[in-house]
Design a protein around this nucleic acid. Structure first.
Lengths: 215, 215, 215, 215
DNA sequence: AATGAATGAGCTTTCATTCAT
DNA sequence: TATGAATGAAAGCTCATTCAT
């Protein structure tokens, strides 16, 4: 028992920053960066206000840490899908539903909302986000779609544009959870939304069956 | 000379509130509500800080006015379309491209971003917005889609879900203009986005042509 | 009576900065810069804490203003003495007793103490002070002494060194008033100090009367 | 090996408090008491912040220790001079140059600056300092001067006043080292200053040679 | 004896709000 | 109507002090 004490403490010490960014993320998403007080973050994390400054130089630095920490882990998972799926349709489905499961439906889903709200106030973080998240995500989608087009499964579409159009309903839905969501009981009911979404875009992408095709 | 003064003044006086909300809207959208100082709004509007209090009781009241003013004018325009178009496909296109032209592409396009960011801090305004904007807009879309289904032009889809999915890419694009947009030169290039968007959704909605159809 | 109101206000407005620096000076000298709270300054000046920020950007800026304002007015008075006195001995006496009357014995006498205490924390202000106050003051003394030597009234001495040595007892005494002074009742008794000081230095500077001089 | 450890440790332990006060002294002198953080002191002393509290109850207690430790050793050295010198002029010279060598030119020279800056914030320490340092130093000087007057070597002067006047240039110069000194390269050049100082005061004190004196 | 993570009171600074003019 | 000087509550941040290890 006396042995667990230091162990607990050490574990605590190492886990602290993530406990703090987790608390900060939820409040930033809920109220916005400027409207969130450090006291609130500290309270939610169960520490005192001063403790925040042991780990982060300033409120701004905390914001940056929140974004980076929420973004880094999801970077590789998606890119691995490219090799796991050959069929373009399956690949596209895997990417999009994977994003929803790993990001959109988790507490990380607040990050797009937060980043979009604060992009103007944190230009450097916004640049980082666009480079590391948006561009890499776009490249992933682009690879899937262009493979589909190459194989004649998807119709010819503007690659740049389609990527944004495809991801929009998912991001929008994730943002919704942290804005109007709380006032609707429909929260849990994402099923129909996703089903309809996939139905619409896959149908919309699919190349028309050639006249004489017997399929 | 003494006569023109009051005339100019009166016109000025009546226009004041809208000049103020316009200044407030652009700043709220750019920096967020909490991060925007009344000094900045006053400066952008070309008045003194005290003047704001002649027209609005508080910063919160100014926020509410900004939302209401940006929302009211667009309410009826859309609903009028229902009668102007008979063909469901044309109607749907008219509704969606109408939204983009009247809202999304104008300075009013910032309102969805603002409202989404601040929904948590202004529950009553959010409720108002949801009731007066989202639900009425949804009802409009719903009418168009269900008419299309009824006539066999559109496939059978979940009506509630499809409305959100359909509007998402447009709203998302509007929000983009006020977040990441300023850092991309692609700003002006909405054309391909819209084209691809309509291409995708209309194709995705369209009912499959029956085998023996001669079109 | 209704007329005096705006007048009083306008006068107030213009006089504010000096009321604030005066309050700040006395507290900075008494407690030191870091140990002085802005609340205390505001209270002593009879304003609220926020008012300080209408006139000064920060506590540091207030410090700089305190020094500059306390230094500027005394700059020219001394230099004018050079032309008013021809006799080197009278000139030297006029400079030194003039410093005491205009600076050392007034509330400005705290500035040397303050500047000396804080020189390390405000290198730029210290540089300004040294350039505008110390060097100009030294030049003045130097002119007086070198004139005395040229005329054979004073003995030959190191000009740089003598200037510092001469001013030291006066500055030291001024600083004393704001440190140990308050705990001695002797405060008022500067008379003997000055008398002894002048007696010592003038005697010490005087050239020995040549053997055959008939006085 | 296990034996040397405790030995080194013991020596270390006993030396600790002085290492700490030495670090504190240099920082207090450089930045002032309030502007010096305990972290800085600990870092300069090469210990952790908590260690300071093993030796001193509080920051205030550390300040008092710094003053006492810097003051005690010099107390007796000066008073011993009274018996070592008979000639008043030599005695006075020995006292003053002794002060410069033992205090003014060493790191203890910062103590007068520190004490003067903080006298208002530490009335009890100031009282102690005045009693144990200033008054005893003054008494020493007084003895030397009055012996000189009694023997007809020095002119008649106000004893209280002359003591302050005499020490002022030395203390002033010591304080200078820790304020404006760092910004002048002249630092090393105290020689001319001291030479001029002694030249001035001894000349100024000397009784005029009577007319018929054959010296 | 020594550490350094944690605390929270207290400080500087900001800004919505008021009000005399 | 319009102003802007003044306010003071509240926020970000610091740092002397404590204490479990």
């Amino acid at each position: 028992m006396t042995e667990t004490q230091p162990a607990r403490r050490r574990r605590r010490k190492e886990a602290r920053p993530q406990e703090l960014t987790a608390a900060a993320l939820s409040l930033f998403v809920e109220k916005g960066f400027a409207a969130t007080r450090l006291d609130d973050i500290a309270e939610r994390a169960g520490v005192s206000k001063g403790t925040l400054y042991l780990y982060f130089d300033s409120k701004d630095a905390l914001f940056k840490a929140v974004i980076q920490e929420g973004v880094v882990p999801a970077l590789h998972a998606g890119e691995a899908l490219l090799e796991q799926h050959d069929d373009p349709l399956e690949l596209l489905r895997a990417i999009l539903s994977g994003w929803w499961e790993r990001i959109g439906s988790t507490e990380l889903g607040g990050i797009p909302k937060l980043m979009m709200s604060e992009a103007g106030n944190f230009p450097d973080v916004a640049a980082y986000y666009q480079r590391e998240v948006i561009q890499r995500g776009t490249a992933l989608l682009r690879a899937a779609v262009s493979r589909g087009i190459a194989r004649g499964v998807f119709r010819e579409v503007d690659l740049d544009a389609i990527c944004s159009v495809l991801i929009a309903p998912l991001v929008y839905r994730a943002m919704w959870r942290y804005s109007f969501g709380p006032r609707c009981g429909q929260e849990a009911d994402v099923g129909p939304y996703l089903k309809t979404y996939f139905d619409l875009i896959l149908n919309g992408l699919m190349a028309p069956v050639a006249a004489g095709d017997t399929q």
